[in-house]
């Protein structure tokens, strides 16, 4: 095969995959009115997603907050400006680090498991069985997962933000000589400076995590539902799900930040 044909085929395959994800997302959006019918399953999925990823999320968030405080604190101490450490840690966690960490961990834990579960169902004809029973796999399998992660990702992000800030406060107190009072006052002032009930830093971060949750679930379900060829196909579906989720988290994170901080001010 000539290189141009290979390139065309590779691009075609990627576009086909992207189109399938978009189609799945749109069909899930159309099926949203059926959420009450799937409520029990959706809550089970949300509970499982939360429980499964909570410990890892909290540990990683605590260390991420600590590292952030450490790296920033070293530079701030050189300029004698350690008092703003709380501000920087709080803003970084809420705007970017919290949603990003939570998204990546959800992609690695819950997204991979969704892809494996749906991939196994696909290769063992369970998805085809749903279709021949006139049960829409999007409505039955995808929608509850998308809703579950869209709910759980912001909740985990809030916890992640708090634990990350706490991790930063420990470093601030023990390694950088910033008192906890000063750290938490500056953190609170940073987050409430807009004077609104829900500060922009928080709601943009939460919106970002909601988008991440829906994206991870859609991409992971799409990878699972396109699995072919037995165990090998399921393995490839998991790999694709995690890779594409992480790429999407970064790209969507950029787009949401750009939209809220540059486009709309």
């Amino acid at each position: 095969m000539n290189p141009f044909a290979s390139l065309t085929q590779a691009v075609g395959t990627r576009l086909d995959g992207a189109g399938y994800v978009v189609d799945l997302l749109l069909r899930s959006a159309v099926a949203v009115r059926r959420v009450p019918r799937r409520m029990r399953f959706t809550l089970d999925m949300a509970f499982n997603a939360g429980v499964r990823s909570l410990p890892v999320t909290l540990v990683v968030a605590a260390f991420a907050g600590a590292i952030l405080a450490m790296q920033t604190g070293i530079e701030l101490r050189r300029f004698g400006d350690s008092a703003v450490l709380g501000t920087i840690t709080a803003l970084s966690m809420c705007r970017e680090m919290g949603p990003f960490i939570t998204g990546v961990i959800l992609a690695a834990t819950v997204g991979s498991s969704m892809a494996a579960e749906l991939g196994t169902m696909k290769v063992s004809d369970e998805v085809a069985a749903l279709e021949v029973m006139s049960v829409d796999p999007v409505d039955y399998l995808v929608l509850p997962r998308v809703i579950a992660l869209a709910i759980m990702c912001p909740i985990l992000t809030v916890l992640s933000n708090l634990v990350g800030m706490y991790g930063g406060s420990v470093i601030a107190e023990h390694n950088l000589g910033v008192s906890p009072d000063l750290y938490w006052i500056s953190a609170r002032e940073a987050l409430t400076s807009s004077g609104t009930l829900l500060p922009k830093e928080v709601y943009v971060g939460l919106f970002k995590s909601l988008v991440f949750g829906a994206a991870i679930a859609t991409v992971s379900c799409a990878s699972g539902l396109r699995a072919t060829g037995g165990a090998l196909g399921v393995g490839l579906a998991v790999q694709t799900a995690v890779r594409n989720s992480v790429i999407l988290i970064i790209v969507l994170g950029f787009i949401v930040t750009w939209f809220f901080y540059f486009l709309t001010g």
Partner: peptide, 28 residues
Amino acid sequence: TLRKRMGYLFQNGALINWLTVADNVALP
């Protein structure tokens, strides 16, 4: 609509693993 008038028995049964036998049968 057509599929509601048809049944399909897959090679391995293709049952949904997280549903009991009764719930699998009840699904349609």
